[in-house]
Write a protein that binds this DNA or RNA. Structure first.
Length: 494
RNA sequence: GGGCCGCUAGCUCAAUUGGCAGAGCAGCUGACUCUUAAUCAGCCGGUUCUGGGUUCGACUCCCGGGCGGCUCACCA
């Protein structure tokens, strides 16, 4: 019979047969004494203790992931969150009726099996079923047992099938959770407090990106989904917390690619009385500590690269890096026009004449430098025009105390000695506004409410943002950000 | 948004030059009381992403549309 509809119909008929026998196919409670791994461990302990007396018994519960029918005995594989355990159902032991009932079970159903543990001839620890209980009937067939789900569209749209079929995928998201957990431990251990700030904001600031907009009906006012966490966290520093962080989702209404997802998770942390050098030390310690806890080592394999995350990481200024990798000393091209001309001469095709000097430098760095930064590297001292929230570097005109750090050639995070001079900050916002009028750059919007906060006084502060998705990519060796986001943004399919 | 590639059974994949749309897994029937990608025999299963066109004949060629991947652009 089976097309999809027929397969579903057959399962519904089985469900109805079970119900006709008075069986609750979706019971509220499950008999369960051990998870799969725990049951095996219990049996091994009993063996290690000399196998005295009766073997331990267990109730295990999980999804039926394989059935091997031998006629008057069957083997079922039951898989739960801990792993897989085999169950042996023998007609002589379980009885005629219960054995016949196996016919109404399907791959994908949830089942609880109860009985003593034993080792089969091939030494596999197995539950010898004395009884079983249906926990939930599945109406659709699971993915194919050997190849699993390979179709990328199914994997993303129906992630549960991907997780069901592909253990490596389950591991990636466990690792992601472990990364975030280790990150919290690191920060909590250093006296940072975790806070939550608004996702819906009247101004979306803290980054140069296009926000999503929405409308609040009761307030009859438009809101933006946040594009960074920065400005609210600084308000908390102003309020008197010395160390704050937030791990939160942010949203940018821009293109998607292997390294950009529409919504992504960022850690931002702010530390009063620290500067960007202090932040850099904290970053390398935190990331290497996370790797040690999650991977058991401070090296990570990413494509063909072995990444060494142990501190200290390389530090190089943007100017030095451009000299080293491109032979351009931007000190020799101090104006926008000269730099534009030089890059144009070098074959940059898509330069916009409206771009600022800083934006042009950024462009050159993206092209010449970033792909070379395979081992963890702090790229220091950015142009002021593209860093409106960072403090100027003393003695260096047009440069601010800012770094981005790179691993495997792409950006992981961004940090500054935060600008705390409210007059300077206002001028920076105004300069952004002028840039927006002159060119096509995405710019920071002026946030008057934030400026008022700054005018109340903010201590010298070091701040940082890290893309958690990207860090997870590095630590799990994944080439696409969609492989580390459970439900990546996809176009709706109708 | 541009370019390139992909879409065939529930899943994983075939299909020669344009010539009857196939296999494995899953499912169904039967055999089998220690199997584990169980095995053996038989059977069922298709809007070939979608809408047009060319042709005696289209999974295959042409045009439009959808979704996805890669890439470029955009983007901290």
């Amino acid at each position: 019979m089976p097309g999809e509809e027929e397969l579903i119909q057959l399962r519904i008929e089985k469900l109805q047969r079970l119900q006709a026998r008075g069986i609750d196919v979706y019971p509220a409670r499950a008999a369960r004494t051990h998870d799969a791994i725990g049951a095996k461990a219990a049996f091994e302990r009993w063996e290690a203790d000399g196998a005295q007396g009766d073997a331990p018994a267990a109730s295990v519960a999980g999804r039926i992931t394989a059935m091997r029918d031998m006629g008057k005995a069957s083997f079922l594989d039951v898989t739960d969150g801990s792993g897989r355990i085999q169950c042996y159902v023998k007609k002589d032991i379980i009885g005629e009726e219960a054995y016949a009932g196996l016919a109404d079970l399907d791959l994908g159903d949830f089942l609880s099996v109860t009985g003593p543990l034993f080792r089969t001839r091939t030494q596999e620890i197995t539950v010898e079923a004395r009884s079983y209980q249906v926990l939930a009937k599945a109406l659709r067939p699971p993915p194919e047992k050997w190849h699993g789900v390979e179709d990328i569209e199914i994997r993303y749209r129906q992630r549960y099938l991907d997780l069901m079929a592909n253990a490596e995928v389950r591991d990636i998201f466990r690792t992601r959770a472990a990364i975030v957990s280790a990150m919290r431990r690191h920060l909590d251990g250093r006296g940072f407090i975790e806070v939550e700030t608004p996702v819906l904001q009247p101004e979306a600031g803290g980054a140069a990106a296009t926000p999503f907009t929405t409308h609040h009906r009761a307030l009859d006012q438009d809101f933006f989904l946040r594009i960074s966490l920065e400005l609210h966290l600084k308000r908390l520093i102003i309020g008197g917390y010395d160390r704050v962080y937030e791990i939160g989702r942010i949203f940018r209404n821009e293109g998607v690619s292997w390294k950009y997802n529409t919504e992504f998770t960022m850690l931002e942390m702010y530390e009063a009385y620290a500067d960007y050098n202090d932040v850099a030390r904290n970053v390398e310690e935190m990331v290497s500590s996370i790797a040690q806890q999650v991977l058991g080592t401070t090296t990570a394999q990413f494509e063909e690269h072995t990444i060494d995350l142990a501190p200290p990481w390389k530090r190089i200024t943007m100017r030095e890096a451009l000299i080293e990798h491109a032979g351009i000393d931007f000190a020799e091209f101090r104006t926008r026009e000269k730099l534009y001309e030089e890059l144009h001469r070098r074959g940059f095709a898509d330069l916009d004449p409206g771009w600022s000097w800083g934006k042009l430098i950024d462009e050159a760095v993206s092209h010449y430098v970033e792909p070379k930064l395979i081992q963890p590297t702090f790229l220091l001292d950015y142009p002021k025009e593209i860093s409106p929230l960072a403090k100027s570097k003393p003695g260096e005109d047009g440069i601010v105390e800012r770094f981005e750090f790179f691993i495997a050639g792409f950006e992981m995070g961004n940090a500054y000695s935060e600008l705390n001079d409210p007059v300077d900050q206002r001028e920076r916002f105004e300069a952004q506004r002028r840039l927006a009028a002159a060119g096509i750059e995405e710019v920071e919007t002026l946030d008057e409410d934030f400026l008022i906060a700054l005018e109340h006084g903010m201590p010298p502060t070091g701040g940082l943002g890290i893309g958690i998705d990207r860090l997870t990519m590095i630590l799990t060796g994944q080439r696409s950000i969609r492989e580390v986001i459970l439900f990546p943004a996809l176009r709706r399919k109708d």
